[in-house]
Amino acid sequence: MITALLIVHGLIAVALLGAITHQTLAALAPAGAGTHSFFARFRRVPPASFANAFVVLYLLSVLLGSVIYLQFRTDVRPILERDREWQAIGLFDLKEHFITIGLGLLPVYWVCWRRPMPNDSGRTRTAVTAIFAFIVWWGFLMGHVLNNILGFGG
């Protein structure tokens, strides 16, 4: 059961990663109309359209992660401690902290993309989106680092 949850958690994380990467690049460096490279097409998405999906995916991912985390604490972390994988523990702890900071930022993110005010500069929106990109990439990569260290659920 926990392995199935972990796979679903991973799939949601992939979708989250795709959405936030598209959105961040589109916000940071909007593509010009004349360019047709892969990178330009990657950035030429309507970034606001990702916002609702991102919020739902983020919440789902946190919810699943919270459930899986219970088993991680009882079954996986003691082994990491036994094997003195201190850095791995620290990296994963950072993941949990960053996820909570992201939870706090979620309403701001949504307001910035879906209910912007006419006098908004866009800097706040870009900064918040970039912070989310960092959090999601960190969470994804550290999840994989931990998963691959011991073969979680194997």
């Binding site: 620290g90 706090g104 912070i131």
Partner: peptide, 23 residues
């Protein structure tokens, strides 16, 4: 509205500092 992204950035740095003993 600057503080709305500056405070999370400082929060991230605070968390990194908190976890430094592991490293």
């Amino acid at each position: 509205s600057v503080w709305v992204w500056v405070l999370p950035l400082l929060g991230i740095l605070g968390c990194v500092y908190f976890e430094l003993p592991w490293f």
